[in-house]
Design a protein around this nucleic acid. Sequence first.
DNA 1: GCTGGCACTCGCCGCGGGTGAGTGCCAGGG
DNA 2: CCCTGGCACTCACCCGCGGCGAGTGCCAGC
Lengths: 338, 338
Amino acid sequence: MLSERRLEVLRAIVHDYVGTEEPVGSKALTERHHLGVSPATVRNDMAALEEEGFIAQPHTSAGRIPTDKGYRLFVDKLAGVKPMTAPERRAIQNFLDGAVDLDDVVGRTVRLLAQLTRQVAVVQYPSLTRSTVRHVELLSLAPARLMLVLITDTGRVEQRMIDCPAPFGETSLADLRARLNSRVAGRRFTDVPQLVQDLTESFDKDDQGTVATVLSTLLETLVEETEERLMIGGTANLTRFGHDFPLTIRPVLEALEEQVVLLKLLGEATDSGMTVKIGHENAHEGLSSTSVVSVGYGSGSEAVAKLGVVGPTRMDYPGTMGAVRAVARYVGQILAES
Amino acid sequence: MLSERRLEVLRAIVHDYVGTEEPVGSKALTERHHLGVSPATVRNDMAALEEEGFIAQPHTSAGRIPTDKGYRLFVDKLAGVKPMTAPERRAIQNFLDGAVDLDDVVGRTVRLLAQLTRQVAVVQYPSLTRSTVRHVELLSLAPARLMLVLITDTGRVEQRMIDCPAPFGETSLADLRARLNSRVAGRRFTDVPQLVQDLTESFDKDDQGTVATVLSTLLETLVEETEERLMIGGTANLTRFGHDFPLTIRPVLEALEEQVVLLKLLGEATDSGMTVKIGHENAHEGLSSTSVVSVGYGSGSEAVAKLGVVGPTRMDYPGTMGAVRAVARYVGQILAES
DNA sequence: GCTGGCACTCGCCGCGGGTGAGTGCCAGGG
DNA sequence: CCCTGGCACTCACCCGCGGCGAGTGCCAGC
């Protein structure tokens, strides 16, 4: 096991490297942090830390930089979450409070998070999986053409066009609308299939085809929309990545455009609490030099979606984690209110 | 006026520079293009072109590169639009045909355009300004809470929550819904304010407050949604920008995140036909080393929105213009069908 | 187990010469 | 009058070199 001081040395190395972006040597360390020991001692500690794989030297006779494993230890054992200051918290709230609809909430959240962390922000739209149906509406656009509108408790609205196999009267429509809503309103998405199972049979033979089409479209929408959408922002911050960056930045931009990749990325985060994925811990290889800090957020006690930031492994973990947590909390509040 | 051959020299310079990304000299030019004259002659022509500001040398005793003015002349006089090949056209159509809804159409268009041009693609959602109302729906969510859903002929759906000043009965609701639709369905957005002007008065005193609220929300939505949304993609292509790129890429990424900037950018394009903005011709200074090729597209004969690509001034203009035009054409078709 | 001392490594920086692509100019020829 | 070949000149780029200094590992001593 590593001694207390060696952990302290690791912490100091991470701190300095994050700040300066340059390999940090033993002398500089003792000067900037009052460790109470000489450079030579620190050198021994560094040798030990390197032996264990927590730090590495880019080339012989250079300072050390933390490895992914080193950051992992730092995040798990050495770093706390730096809480936001009161003014910062107020600013967050003010910024989010003006939002007028869901798109706006998500948009503001992305911008805010990108600005606070100076990194790339990713915000998932509130998931439909755990959501409930607020209302289902059916509109007749033409004799044999309907529009299905699905409204969720998170304020999301989805619509689908439906071409009916046969004309469908206004009374039948009103009937279907009423029955559908009495069954599914307020219920969870996952329960809907069961709830509407036998609805078709109770209609006139003439209308059964249309009813079946409507129902299957509804179920389809539920499934389709469980594949989440998301919004990203702050990509300009990628330019602060490092010196070597054409090589670094390209795969990251590519990964960010693959919504599937990002969703998986966020999806891997544990449901509650914050998740930090460091470097190669990320499944996607384009992101092997980035870290992802993510957390769930939600309107109630349950998380309905996730948000997070993507930045270089060399990032200010405590600060980033603090910002992510604070933003998630306030977004949750906003959603709960609306 | 510039002689025919000098224009040919300029064309050759643009062609080679776009291909190689390196200043092009007189000898190389005569070798690659059979101009029928010697390097010395070309040098004289080059001197003249430089005199007029169409080309420049990065430093003495280096080859020439085109200036913005040079590209402008090239685009206006020397370059045609390179039409897509038949297989390419088929691929475009196939790629777009599978789209299920408006978001999907726009999403696919962005990806397609980015891939075809290997540059950053920007697609504006079909504008509501020129659109007509297909249907307005009112749903009662709670005794004093309504939801307004607006459906446009381009398949876009917008919703707004409305808190009523007083409870509003189902019959009144149905009444309002019917009267509203009979007045505005099929009409242009711009005509709506006039059409609903006197609607409030025809209702019971008790309901007038709510009706007024609904109407003002509707008008608000029309106005708000005239501010367009857009989608961008292919940002990873920015890495192919050039060598010096931390400096170049950063302001571009920033500009791309400012939707307002992009909208203005596309907005400046003339209504019909293709617009090419080169380098400093772009109002936004972050984009002073990029060119924007944009064109309107629409479901009918009228353009309802715009799309385009953003790339380095050193781009393949004929090819890019061809791709942009082709994609716009097909998107228009798709929208017209749905 | 910490410390100071010491020899060593090696990336970074600035210097200097050689190379070659490219230029401008000029005199001569169709 | 315009094009051409020739010629001297410029200057960015490449490469090798040596000095510098931060940083290291090791070791003997307290």
